[in-house]
């Protein structure tokens, strides 16, 4: 049995379960919840890692509530722009940032756009985005670039260094 990474991994597993809940003719409810759950899996993976660095354990849940979806998108976009500009960042961070932006939009569609019809192959592909992001993150989570990224996620503005 592998290491129990907890809630984010359980969410990702649940996303796959939902995507395959019906053997044939998958329900829109299952597919849409799968997409949404995959996004929240990555969202919570990053938040958990960020607040896990906070020494005062009883304050972590308060910190976790300060994360804003829109701001996180902006930070991820900044990572992509930095890579494009030649910044030396681990390629895995690019994978995580890219996946986060994509999953976030998919989640918005899944949760709020009733006109959209999801198909299983599309949903499973979305889930592979999340899976790849998890693997990429775990490969670099201890590195400075990853830790700086986490700090940016909940700082209003990075101080000059």
């Amino acid at each position: 049995m592998g290491v129990d990474h907890g809630f984010p991994d359980d969410l990702l597993e649940q996303a796959y379960d939902l995507a395959h809940k019906e053997a044939t003719d998958p329900k829109q409810a299952s597919l849409r919840r799968a997409v949404s759950t995959a996004y929240y899996a990555l969202f919570h993976l990053l938040i958990d890692e960020a607040v896990g660095n906070w020494a005062v354990e009883r304050q972590r849940s308060i910190l976790a509530r300060t994360f804003e979806h829109g701001k996180m998108k902006g930070i991820c976009d900044a990572v992509l722009r930095a890579v494009k500009s030649g910044a030396t960042l681990p390629p895995e961070l690019h994978i995580v940032a890219h996946a986060f932006i994509r999953l976030q939009d998919h989640r918005q569609t899944a949760d709020y756009d009733n006109s959209r019809h999801w198909v299983r192959s599309d949903v499973v592909d979305v889930l592979t985005l999340a899976t790849n992001a998890f693997s990429a993150w775990r490969a670099i989570s201890g590195q400075d670039a990853a830790q700086d990224f986490l700090l940016q996620l909940f700082l209003p503005k990075m101080p000059r260094q």
């Binding site: 976009d77 932006i101 994509r102 939009d105 998919h106 198909v119 299983r120 192959s121 599309d122 592909d125």
Partner: peptide
């Protein structure tokens, strides 16, 4: 921003 969705011919 670029977003992708995929679908099979059968679907």
């Amino acid at each position: 921003f670029a977003y992708y969705n995929f679908r099979s011919v059968s679907e």
